[in-house]
Design a protein around this nucleic acid. Structure first.
Length: 727
RNA sequence: GCCCGAGUGGCGGAAUUGGUAUACGCGUUCGACUUAAAAUCGAAUGAGGAAACUCAUAUGGGUUCAAGUCCCAUCUCGGGCACCA
C-alpha cells in the first residue's frame, strides 16, 4: 500500500476490535487483582433520533473516546459503556403520524445509531449496552420509583401545573423555557391537575451546599445554585383588622418591618375571598380572572404594575398602623407564602406599585451620605431610622434582632425559602415508563408489588392521548386491570382486589437519573446495580455532555443522595468531573438545523473519503472542547493532510538511522506535551503538538522509534491509522 | 436590572505559574514537480519601513525590571437569572 486509504484501514480495525472485544472492561476479579486505578467514563447517552448521528454527537463521543484510549494506555482499569435514552415524544409523535409503534421505531433507530457509532471506531464496551425502554431496564426504573415512594419522596398532589396543549402533557418547571415547552416550543398553560412528584426539595440544602466542591464547570454550578435559589429570611404573621384570619408573608428584609405600608397577595391566594367587601368583590374577582387567562409570556412581557384593593386592612405589628391589603400579579403564589409585606422605600417593585396606586412610602434605612445613588429606593445596608427601639441599629444586625423580637411575640420566625419546586414526574404520554401504581375503587393508591415488576407497556392500536387528558395507555382496557393483594386494616385478612393502573408515565429524566449505575452491572436480574460492582466502578469519574445543565445534572445528584441514604450507594455525588462540551455550528456560525438545510452529516464526511480518523481528529482540533465552534469545510482538509503525512512518514519515507540527537529529544518533547495536554483536556493543542512533531520529523528524518512514538501519541485521536502504523 | 465569562493576524485559535506575543491549522502569495491541472513537497505571510527599528493582544489609565496575563474605569459580544419579596 502506498496511499493512505482510511476506508480499508478503518474496516479492518473495527472488525478486529469487534472480534477481540478489545474494549471490554476487565471483570471485577481481574480489575482488583491487577492493582491498577479504575476509570469510569461516559458521555451523556444519546436519544437515538431517526436522523442518526450528527457532528455534535461525534464531538461528545470523541472526547470520551480520546480519554478512554489515553487512560487505557496509562494502564488503568477503564469502563466505557454506552446506551440509549429511548423514551420520549419524538417516537410517540411519529407513531401517531405513521402508526409505526414506538417500540419498533426505537429499535430501528438504535440499530442505526449503533452502526454509525461503530463506524467512528469508538472504544466502547458493547457488552454493556443499555436502553431505557427495554423492560429489563425499566423494571428497575420502576423499582427506583417504589423506593422513593416507600420513603414518601414520591407523592401525588393536586396543583396548578404547566400544561403543553400541543403535546397534551404536563411538564416539569425545568422543562419550561421562557414560557414555552422545551420540546415543541408551544406556549404552555397552567392547569389544575392531580400529579405525581418527587420530593427533590427534601435535598435542597445538600444539593446546594455540595455544589461548590464539585469538579464541574463554574457555569453549571452557578446555574444549579440559581435554580435551587435558597434565601434566608423570616416568616411574619400579620393580623387582619376585624377578622380572625392572619396573613403570613415571607421576607428577606425583616429589618424593614417599620417601613411596611401595605400588603400584597398573589391573585391565587386562598384568603382573598374572605377579604373582599361588598364594594370590592366584583373588581377583585375580575382581576383574578384576567390573571388566570394571561399566559406566562404575557405576564412576563407586561411589567407595568397592575392590582386591586381588597377592601380589608392588616395591622403592621411593629407600628400598630392600619395598612391596606392589595392583590397583584407581581406576587407569585408559587414562592414564599404567596403574600408579601411591601416596603416601597426599599424595594423597586413595591416602590413602583406604591407610586402607581398612590400608597404611602416610609423610609426606614438611612442611605450612607457618600453614596451616589440616583435610584428611587435604596436597597443597601445602613442605620435604621423611624424604627422605634431599633433606631440607629445597623440594618444587617437588625435582621436578627427584629426576628427575635417578633418571635417573642409569637408572630414571626426565621425561615428559609427555596426557588426550586418539587419535581413533577407525571406525563400523560404513552411512550414512557409506566408508573407502578394502581388505584382501588375508592381511588386510594397502591404500589405495584416489586415481584410484579416490570409493568410492561401494552401494545395499542392508536397512540393518541385520549381527550380527557390521559395517555393512550387508558385505551388498553385489559392492561388497565390489575390484581393486587391487600390486607384489611381491621381484620388483618388478605384478599385479592382488582384495581385500575395509573395511566401516567414517568418523565424521561427519571429513566436517565440512574443509568450510570446500571452500567456497572447491566444484566443483573437481582439488583438495579450490583453492590460489588458499584463499589468498585462508581461514581463516574468523567462525564461528558453539552446539555441538561440543571435538569438531568440536578436529578442524578438528587437520586444519588437518596440512594446513598438508603445504604444502596457508597457515595453522595454521582459524577466527579463533568466536562461540558460546546456545540458545533454550521459554517455560517448558525445552529445546524434540518429546516435551514445547513446540517453536516458525519457519515457523509467519513464516506467522502476523509474517514473517521480525520473526522475525529478534526473535531478535537477545531478549538477548546468547551467552546462552541463553527464547522470549517476547508480546515478539515488540513487535518486529512496531517494524517496523510503521518502515513507517508511510516510507509513512503526511507527509515532514518536511529541517532541520539536531535530525535530522542524531539520524541520526549512531543510525548511530554501531548500527555500533559490530555491531562488538562486541551485536545486542540495536543493535536497541534502532533502536527508540529510530524513537521519536525519531515526535516530530521524519522527512525523506527520515532514512528512508533508518533503512532502511540496519535492513537487516542486517530486509532485506526495509529494501529495500522504500529503493525 | 443583577450575576458570570470573553474580546489576540484575513479566519479558527496558541501563549499551562507575570518572562521570546501570534504555536498549530485554514486562507493567500511565490517556487519545485507536471504538457497542464489536481495532489504532493519547499518557502513567505501582524502592520509600517530599503534597513536599523518602530508600533500592535477591545479602549483609557495604573502596578512591575517585565503585562495578552494582575488592578481600576469604559465599550462590545456571549451566557445565566430576572416582579423570587
Amino acid at each position: 500500500m502506498d496511499r493512505y486509504d482510511p476506508k480499508t484501514i478503518e474496516e479492518t480495525w473495527q472488525k478486529i476490535w469487534q472480534e477481540q472485544e478489545t474494549f471490554k472492561a476487565p471483570s471485577l476479579k481481574t480489575a482488583k487483582d491487577n492493582h491498577q486505578a479504575k476509570m469510569f467514563l461516559a458521555e451523556m447517552f444519546p436519544y437515538p433520533s431517526g436522523a442518526g448521528l450528527h457532528v455534535g454527537h461525534v464531538r461528545n463521543f470523541t472526547i470520551v473516546d480520546v480519554l478512554t484510549r489515553f487512560y487505557m494506555q496509562q494502564e488503568m482499569n477503564v469502563l466505557r459503556p454506552f446506551g440509549y435514552d429511548t423514551f420520549g415524544l419524538p417516537a410517540e409523535n411519529y407513531a401517531i403520524k405513521t402508526g409505526i409503534s414506538p417500540q419498533s421505531a426505537t429499535e430501528t433507530n438504535i440499530n442505526n445509531f449503533r452502526r454509525q457509532a461503530k463506524r467512528l471506531g469508538l472504544a466502547i464496551d458493547w457488552s454493556r449496552e443499555i436502553n431505557t425502554s427495554n423492560p429489563e431496564y425499566y423494571r428497575w426504573t420502576q423499582w427506583c420509583f417504589l423506593q422513593l415512594y416507600k420513603k414518601g419522596l414520591a407523592y401525588r398532589k393536586e396543583s396548578y401545573q404547566w400544561w403543553c396543549p400541543e403535546d397534551q402533557t404536563v411538564l416539569a418547571n425545568e422543562q419550561v423555557e421562557n414560557g414555552r415547552c422545551w420540546r415543541c416550543g408551544h406556549e404552555v398553560e397552567k392547569k389544575k391537575m392531580k400529579q405525581w412528584f418527587f420530593k427533590i426539595t427534601e435535598y435542597a440544602d445538600e444539593l446546594l451546599d455540595e455544589v461548590d466542591a464539585l469538579d464541574w464547570p463554574e457555569k453549571i454550578k452557578t446555574m444549579q445554585k440559581n435554580w435551587i435559589g435558597r434565601s434566608k429570611g423570616a416568616e411574619i404573621i400579620f393580623e387582619i383588622e376585624d377578622k380572625k384570619d392572619t396573613i403570613k408573608v415571607f421576607t428577606t428584609r425583616p429589618d424593614t418591618i417599620f417601613g411596611v405600608t401595605f400588603l400584597v397577595l398573589a391573585p391565587e391566594h386562598p384568603l382573598i375571598k374572605d377579604l373582599v367587601t361588598e364594594k370590592t368583590r366584583e373588581a377583585v374577582e375580575r382581576y383574578q380572572k384576567e390573571t388566570t387567562k394571561k399566559s406566562e409570556i404575557e405576564r412576563q412581557e407586561n411589567k407595568e404594575k397592575t392590582g386591586v384593593f381588597t377592601g380589608s386592612y392588616a395591622i403592621n405589628p411593629a407600628t400598630g398602623e392600619k395598612i391596606p391589603i392589595w392583590v397583584s400579579d407581581y406576587v407569585l403564589m408559587g414562592y414564599g407564602e404567596g403574600a408579601i409585606m411591601a416596603v416601597p422605600a426599599h424595594d423597586d417593585s413595591d416602590y413602583e406599585f406604591a407610586e402607581k396606586f398612590d400608597l404611602p412610602i416610609k423610609t426606614v434605612i438611612e442611605k450612607p451620605e457618600d453614596l451616589d445613588d440616583n435610584g428611587h429606593c435604596y436597597h443597601g445596608e445602613g442605620k435604621l431610622i423611624n424604627s422605634g427601639q431599633f433606631d440607629g441599629t445597623d440594618s444587617y444586625d437588625a435582621r436578627e434582632q427584629v426576628v427575635a423580637w417578633l418571635e417573642e411575640q409569637g408572630i414571626g420566625k426565621e425561615k428559609i425559602t427555596y426557588r426550586m419546586r418539587d419535581w413533577l414526574i407525571s406525563r400523560q404520554r404513552y411512550w414512557g415508563c409506566p408508573i407502578p401504581i394502581a388505584y382501588d375503587k375508592d381511588g386510594n393508591e397502591h404500589p405495584i408489588p416489586e415481584d410484579q415488576l416490570p409493568v410492561i407497556i401494552p401494545e395499542v392500536e392508536d397512540y393518541k392521548p385520549d381527550h380527557t387528558g390521559r395517555s393512550a395507555l387508558a385505551k388498553a382496557e385489559d392492561w388497565l386491570k390489575v390484581d393486587i393483594e391487600v390486607t384489611d386494616k381491621k381484620t388483618g385478612e388478605k384478599h385479592i382486589e382488582t384495581m385500575a393502573r395509573e395511566t401516567d408515565t414517568l418523565d424521561g429524566y427519571a429513566c436517565s437519573s440512574w443509568y450510570l449505575w446500571r452500567y456497572v452491572s447491566p444484566h443483573d436480574d437481582n439488583y438495579a446495580w450490583s453492590p460489588d460492582a458499584i463499589k468498585y466502578w462508581a461514581p463516574t469519574d468523567i462525564y461528558v455532555g453539552g446539555d441538561h445543565a440543571v435538569a438531568h445534572l440536578l436529578y442524578i445528584r438528587f437520586w444519588c443522595k437518596f440512594f446513598a441514604d438508603q445504604g444502596l450507594l457508597p457515595f453522595r455525588e454521582p459524577v466527579k468531573t463533568l466536562l461540558y462540551n460546546g456545540y458545533i455550528n454550521a459554517p455560517d456560525g448558525k445552529k445546524m438545523s434540518k429546516s435551514k438545510g445547513n446540517v453536516i452529516d458525519p457519515l457523509d464526511v467519513i464516506d467522502s473519503g476523509y474517514g473517521a480518523d480525520t473526522l475525529r481528529t478534526y473535531e478535537m482540533f477545531i478549538g477548546p472542547y468547551d467552546q462552541d465552534a463553527a464547522w470549517d469545510t476547508k480546515a478539515i482538509g488540513g487535518v486529512y493532510r496531517f494524517l496523510n503525512r503521518c502515513w507517508s512518514l511510516c510507509y513512503n519515507t526511507p527509515v532514518a538511522q536511529e541517532g541520539t540527537s536531535p530525535n530522542s529529544s524531539l520524541r520526549n518533547k512531543a510525548t511530554k506535551k501531548v500527555t500533559e495536554d490530555l491531562h488538562r483536556r486541551s485536545f486542540n493543542t495536543a493535536v497541534a503538538a502532533l502536527m508540529e512533531y510530524v513537521n519536525e520529523l519531515y526535516k530530521s528524518g524519522a527512525s523506527h522509534e520515532d514512528i512508533t512514538t508518533l503512532a502511540k501519541l496519535l492513537k487516542p485521536f486517530a486509532p485506526h491509522l495509529a494501529c495500522e502504523m504500529l503493525e
